[in-house]
Structure formats: structure tokens, C-alpha cells
Nucleic acid binder design. Sequence first.
DNA 1: GTCTATAAGGGGATAGAC
DNA 2: GTCTATCCCCTTATAGAC
Lengths: 183, 183
Amino acid sequence: MATRASGRSTREAIRAAASRLFRERGYARTPVRDIAALAEVNPALVIRYFGSKEELFLETMRLTIDDEPLLDVPIDRFGERFVDVVLSSEQDIRDVHLALVRGSGEERIAERLREVHEDSLVAPLRARLSGVDADLRARMAAAVVGGLLYSLWIVGDHALESERDVLVRRYGAIVQDIITPET
Amino acid sequence: MATRASGRSTREAIRAAASRLFRERGYARTPVRDIAALAEVNPALVIRYFGSKEELFLETMRLTIDDEPLLDVPIDRFGERFVDVVLSSEQDIRDVHLALVRGSGEERIAERLREVHEDSLVAPLRARLSGVDADLRARMAAAVVGGLLYSLWIVGDHALESERDVLVRRYGAIVQDIITPET
DNA sequence: GTCTATAAGGGGATAGAC
DNA sequence: GTCTATCCCCTTATAGAC
């Protein structure tokens, strides 16, 4: 095999392959060799560049939610919009989330999951809430959204996958009820 | 080591050890050897009795929810009671559920998770509901309860672990809102 | 910067004696 | 029914040549 391009692009090729395979098959079921093969790179390089498989996993399984669509929405429609954003597939929130959940037997992966849950689900909700129970309400709403992801992707609840619009509306209503302070 | 008791009790010892370790450490992080050690039994016997590690896992990670407390409760308090039952630690619903979620990268374990989700969460809710949307509502409520478990145990959301009573009441209210038909 | 070759360990599972 | 001994595969990770 010919020597490939410079170190920079090799690193990126490994990262891209790892990101894809980890999301598709999860941590435990993705050998380093498979990552190397997909990246068309020597297996030794994977470790050389990233130190260990776990480092590589943590390096690739990050999330930053795009909260722009959340900023300009009126508070009484926030629940629906939030569900909409989470379910939007542009960023692969769901895949990364799923991989983290399944890998959470490993302590450091669990830690990353907590960060992702906090930063991507709790924080955006919390930012728009006020009142004494704001924190608890944000966490409950985040848990509910987590439950939606769990149901859709982990248990594969196809019966819940009605029209996307219906899902966003009904689930949005649940979230909305939680974040709206009790009368 | 002296020969232990009869085959019957050996089988039970293996089952008990496996059940405990799988719940504590999960599928991937529990070697057959550790199960044998805890059961004070030869490693070869584990496979001999149960065929494979995966079979043993599926054999031990079952759930049957005790739905007696659900039968005599008035429908308008059903949500709260349901959350109460799920969080009651008598049966280790949560541990088994957690182990199944984390193991769900394996196809057969995912299948078992779907069964458990269906039988222990969806079905008890569905049994008390009626109306056109009954099925969808039952599934959404089940997903929400799954979200609670997810948040409490998988991400370890300690901030959500307020007083148990508070949790049951507030989360029960959410479930109740879902299973109560819209006006 | 990339390769070959291999170390070093752990895993599940099996054969066959007792 | 239970044991010892071991097979065999797969894994991550490293050493050192090119």
C-alpha cells in the first residue's frame, strides 16, 4: 500500500472512521482493527495517534447542541422546539447519545455521558427557566427527553414512531407542562 | 476443594452469582470466571449448565413486575402509584433494566430489553387505559418512566434524587397527565 | 510518519479424567 | 456431577525497522 498523505489527514481519517463505527456499533463491538481498516490506515497508528481506544472514543463522542433555534422561540413553545431540535438529525445527537449510554459501564464513558446530558439537555432547558424549582424542572424535562431517546433508539419502540410531527407535538407538550411553573 | 452439593444447588449457586454480578457490573465486564468464583464452583460448570455466557445472562436477567399494587388504585392516582412501584426496590427492576440497557448492543439482549420494556412498563399502563390513543399514551408514559430510570441510574443524576416522596409525586403527576385523555 | 511483527493478556469454551 | 488442563481466538498495545 502506498504511503498515504501527511499526518494531519491520517489523524482525521482515523477520527472519522472511529466516529462512524463507534456510533454504528458501539464501543465494545468496535475493534481498533476495524477502525484502522475503514480509515485505510495501519492499526498501530490508531494507538500512536490517540493513545488508547478509550481516549479515541472519548475524543470522538462529543456533542455540542446547536441552541440557536432555542433562543428566539417564545417560552410557551419552548418544549416543542426543544424536542424538535433534539430529534433533528443534522447533528447526530442520538447516535452519540446511544453509544454513550451503552458504553456507560466504563466509568469514564459514564462521566462523559453525564457531561453530555448536562450540557446538551439540562443546560439549554435550565437557561430559559426561572423560579424556585427551575433546576428540578429542567432536570425532569431533560430526563423525559432522555426517555424519548431511550424509547426510540434503545428499545426500538417503533410504535412510538408515529409521524414525526405528531411526536414533536405530543412530546413537546409533555416537556412544556414540566417547564411551565405550576399555577 | 470438597465436592459441593448436588447439581440442583450448583445450578442455583451459579444462577445467583451471575444474577448479582451481571446486575452489579453489566454483561461485558463480568467474566465467566468471576461468576464461577463467586458461586464457589468450577468455571467449566458455568458453561456446562447454561451453554454460554449469553444464555446465562438472558436466563438471569428477567423481570416480572408485581402489578398487584396497580390493580386497586383509582385511575386518577395511577400515575403516582406506577412510579412508586417502579422505584420500589423490592424487586430489582432498576438493576436489571440498567444491565439490559447497557448490554443492548448485543442483538439478543436488545430483544430482551424490548420484551421487558413491553411487559413491565407498557403493558401495566396499557391495561388501565382506554380510548383511541390509549396505545400511544401508554407507550409515551412508559418512555417517560424509562427516562426517569435512565436519569437516575444511567447518567446518575443525583440532583434529581430529591426526597423519594417528592420524586414519586412530581413524576407521578407527569405520568398521570399523559395517561389521562385530553379533554 | 508509516510500516511489520509481535508481545502480553484475557476471554469463552471444550476434552476427557475422575 | 465435578474436576484439571488447555485450546484457540481476539483484543489492545508496543518495539523497532524503514
